[in-house]
Amino acid sequence: MFIEVKGAKKIYGKGESEVRALDGASLSLEEGGLYVILGPSGSGKSTLLNMLGGLDHLDGGNLEIGGVKVSGMSDKQLVEYRRSDVGFVFQFYNLIPDLTVRENIQVVADITKEPLNVDEVMEAVDVKKYEHHFPSELSGGQQQRVSIARAIVKNPKILLCDELTGALDSKSAKTVLKFVESVNRKFHTTVIIITHNEAIAQMADRIIRIKDGQVSSNEANPAKRAAKDVEL
């Protein structure tokens, strides 16, 4: 398995205010798939994503990606892991406001050993025409496409998308999903989308459901649809 999570635990707070964001979650996923993790608010899906992306440490359990044990990595090792293997797309885009579209993508290419061509990536997500715009001059959908471009320019092994359409209208959301799908196909990138939007699950190879910090189901999606056919 490409991604192997076993008994993952993450606890925030202490005593009465203790919150078990992950409470023994286990999950196995193959390389190159497009996965959707579903769950209600507070179920622990964002925490799981943070762990997969090396943004935080587990309090218990194991996490291996591509045969490399991510849990137990030091902060410095996590930096290197994020630098080479992970791409992030966030709900609120999180572009760097002081950089133009091209520069927001280039800033990642600069620290990547073998980045993809920035122009090609921009064209792939159709933002080339805005290359000299600052984020504040773009719409939400446009910003999210830039965010995808930024994530994929390093040609990551995993693309992690946190509620990537949460701030978009349905038309923009569908466009963004199409780009994510194309990245998955074109670059064979493992894509994990976390969302509470059930409709997005239609395009997944597998649908993982999380509840109370545990994986309640991990099932193949026999009725997988293309992003363009997803009914949002």
């Binding site: 410095k76 930096v79 994020r82 630098r83 999180n94 572009l95 800033v107 990642v108 620290i111 390093k154």
Partner: peptide
């Protein structure tokens, strides 16, 4: 954001 993108301190 730079941290998330993998920039070193």
């Amino acid at each position: 954001m730079l941290k998330v993108l993998g920039y070193r301190n």
